[in-house]
Amino acid sequence: MVDKTDIEAAARRIGGHVRHTPSYEVRPGLWFKLELLQHSGSFKARGAFNRILAAREAGALPDSGVVVASGGNAGLGVAYAAARLGVRAEVFLPVTAPATKVARLREYGAVVYQHGREYAEAHAASQTRAAETGALVVHAYDQPEIVAGQGTVGLELPEADTVLVAVGGGGLIGGIAAAVGDRARIVAVEPVGAPTLHAALAAGHPVDVPVESVAADSLGARRVGGIAFDLAVHHKVESILVSDEAIVDARHRLWREHRLAVEHGAAAAFAGLDLVADPGAAVVVLCGANTDPATL
């Protein structure tokens, strides 16, 4: 299981490559962690750098580079990290990925393939490609180095009673739980149409769920990762569900009231705030901004 020692090691490894993003006190007792300001537009760059650099340190980074499947953000993080480190990157996306994300991937120099309508289908295609080329597989959320890298967000949070985190595959919440779950209440916020962790906690193990949500481009995993599930159980993570309508409203409120342009996945965490009883001092992690601002 990934623990705080792993996350501290990841922080040392990636420290010169990622931003220490600010936390903004919205009002007394409420903070926004502005991870939308991270390189590549989301927290995913943290795990990507940690995975690639750890492989390089171990002499396990092949000349064929890296391959990743993504709804968009993990691909952007990997493409950005690979470009900065001089590594070839191939990214597999579903055909439903937003055009803005596809365009940015190509700007970073990644080779982009689009396959299937969901992340799971793109992932299957990426595995076939990796077997053909020998490229290093960078998983979007379910590898120890990825979870530890994402967990470095937790090391930067202000002291709080409650931390709200949006969940897709679970790499971010798993890492944050490992980093601060011993001192804060961790609340997972998921779309009703993509309840990966919620369903897993109810079943007692990860299970497949149907995916149909406005936030599917960033929270569109069909099944929560095993690492994240184990960490969520260990740290007693709570899970709440929010509707697409609430997510859309939260996204517009973040723009209207705070001039923060976030993607729907990031807005989900804010949408969950009103559903948390007695949050005390709370931090909402705004995890990404890879969105079309014209829709605000």
Rank of each mutant, 00 (worst) to 15 (best):
L105M: 11
W31K: 10
G265K: 15
A97R: 11
H235F: 11
R253H: 12
I186L: 13
R253C: 07
E8D: 06
V102Y: 15
V187D: 08
I14L: 12
K101S: 13
H205P: 02
G174N: 08
A103Y: 14
V242A: 02
T96F: 08
F92E: 09
R223S: 05
D208K: 04
L273S: 02
A277V: 02
A110F: 10
G41Q: 12
H115D: 12
V87W: 05
A215E: 09
A177M: 04
L61D: 03
Y80I: 02
K236Q: 10
V78W: 00
A268Y: 08
G280A: 08
A55P: 09
P28G: 02
L172K: 06
R46K: 06
V207G: 00
G154S: 06
I14S: 11
V153K: 05
I247Y: 14
G86V: 00
E132C: 14
L201T: 01
H123F: 10
S23C: 14
A294F: 10
A79M: 06
R256Q: 12
G151M: 08
G72E: 14
F229G: 00
V276W: 12
L36T: 15
G154W: 11
I247W: 11
Q38H: 07
F270L: 13
T291W: 09
V78K: 00
A48N: 10
L157I: 11
P144V: 03
G174L: 08
P191S: 08
S40N: 13
G109I: 03
H39T: 00
R12H: 01
P206G: 01
A103D: 08
V187F: 10
A202K: 04
K33N: 12
G47W: 01
D63N: 15
A160L: 01
D161F: 15
G204Y: 09
P206L: 00
E245K: 11
E121W: 15
V187A: 02
T291G: 12
A83C: 05
I173K: 12
D208C: 05
L201M: 02
V163D: 07
D6N: 01
T21K: 12
L172M: 06
D278A: 04
Q114Y: 06
A221K: 12
G171C: 07
G154L: 11
E121R: 14
A228Y: 00
H258G: 02
K101H: 07
T196N: 00
L241G: 01
F229A: 10
H123E: 10
E212M: 11
T21C: 12
P279A: 11
I240A: 05
R12N: 09
E263G: 04
E159N: 07
A58Y: 07
I247P: 04
I240T: 01
V276F: 05
V153P: 13
P28T: 03
H235T: 13
D182I: 05
D63S: 15
D274N: 14
D292Q: 14
I186P: 09
D208N: 09
G65A: 04
S239G: 01
V214M: 09
H198A: 05
V68T: 03
I176Q: 15
G149R: 02
A79C: 09
I7D: 07
V285F: 10
